[in-house]
Simulated assay, not measured.
Amino acid sequence: MAHDTSAVITSHVEAAPVRVWFALTDAEALTAWYWPASMHPRAYSEPVVGGRFGVDAGDMGFAGEYRELDPPRRLVQSWRWAGDDRDSRVTIELAPSGAGTDLRIVHDRVDEETAEMYRAGWESCLTRLPAYLAATPSAESR
């Protein structure tokens, strides 16, 4: 099984990069938008190089380690889905675009089938991000 395929996802949200960065790295924020609230997700996040993060929603979950952090522009993290036996890698780049932010997510070091699954998963998660950002205009100032 080759592990050299990438899922590439692009998105735009109407929020400044610093707010999107917060949503991607704060445990409480991840619990609010990553999976539907009905799944009662739990999260943890220590956004420092070498820090751990993860989201658990019962039968589903993932965890990893922050490898690179360049707030609010780029983060690289290892990623392991619950039950997997190896890590993949996620690189998220944020770029200001008008009053909002363009996101580019590359989830790599996976096979083609897993890349398709991750692409669909990221796209699903990202549909909830704008509502979270709209509902929490000053979340990063906490």
Rank of each mutant, 00 (worst) to 15 (best):
residue 85 D to S: 14
residue 20 V to C: 08
residue 92 I to F: 03
residue 2 A to V: 05
residue 133 L to M: 09
residue 92 I to M: 14
residue 116 E to W: 02
residue 132 Y to R: 06
residue 34 Y to P: 01
residue 85 D to P: 00
residue 76 V to N: 11
residue 99 A to K: 06
residue 31 T to W: 00
residue 20 V to I: 13
residue 83 G to W: 12
residue 9 I to Q: 12
residue 139 A to V: 04
residue 12 H to W: 04
residue 34 Y to D: 01
residue 81 W to R: 11
residue 82 A to S: 13
residue 130 P to S: 08
residue 33 W to Y: 10
residue 83 G to C: 09
residue 51 G to R: 10
residue 79 W to I: 04
residue 80 R to A: 04
residue 85 D to F: 03
residue 18 V to E: 15
residue 8 V to E: 13
residue 135 A to K: 05
residue 8 V to L: 14
residue 96 P to M: 05
residue 45 S to A: 15
residue 102 D to E: 15
residue 97 S to M: 02
residue 35 W to S: 14
residue 114 T to G: 00
residue 76 V to I: 14
residue 16 A to V: 12
residue 12 H to C: 00
residue 14 E to V: 12
residue 21 W to D: 05
residue 73 R to E: 15
residue 81 W to G: 00
residue 5 T to M: 05
residue 17 P to M: 06
residue 83 G to P: 05
residue 92 I to Q: 08
residue 127 T to H: 02
residue 122 W to Y: 13
residue 120 A to R: 12
residue 60 M to C: 01
residue 91 T to L: 12
residue 51 G to A: 04
residue 76 V to S: 11
residue 23 A to H: 10
residue 26 D to W: 01
residue 22 F to I: 00
residue 112 E to G: 01
residue 50 G to S: 04
residue 101 T to W: 03
residue 111 D to T: 04
residue 129 L to D: 05
residue 48 V to D: 06
residue 38 S to L: 03
residue 129 L to V: 08
residue 65 E to P: 01
residue 76 V to F: 07
residue 126 L to V: 06
residue 89 R to H: 03
residue 21 W to I: 03
residue 34 Y to W: 15
residue 44 Y to P: 00
residue 91 T to K: 10
residue 64 G to C: 10
residue 30 L to G: 09
residue 51 G to K: 05
residue 115 A to V: 07
residue 59 D to W: 11
residue 137 P to F: 06
residue 123 E to Q: 14
residue 116 E to Y: 03
residue 63 A to I: 00
residue 59 D to I: 02
residue 65 E to G: 00
residue 87 D to Q: 06
residue 91 T to G: 07
residue 37 A to S: 14
residue 54 G to L: 12
residue 80 R to L: 07
residue 31 T to K: 15
residue 76 V to P: 08
residue 140 E to L: 07
residue 32 A to G: 15
residue 66 Y to A: 02
residue 46 E to F: 02
residue 54 G to I: 09
residue 103 L to K: 04
residue 25 T to E: 11
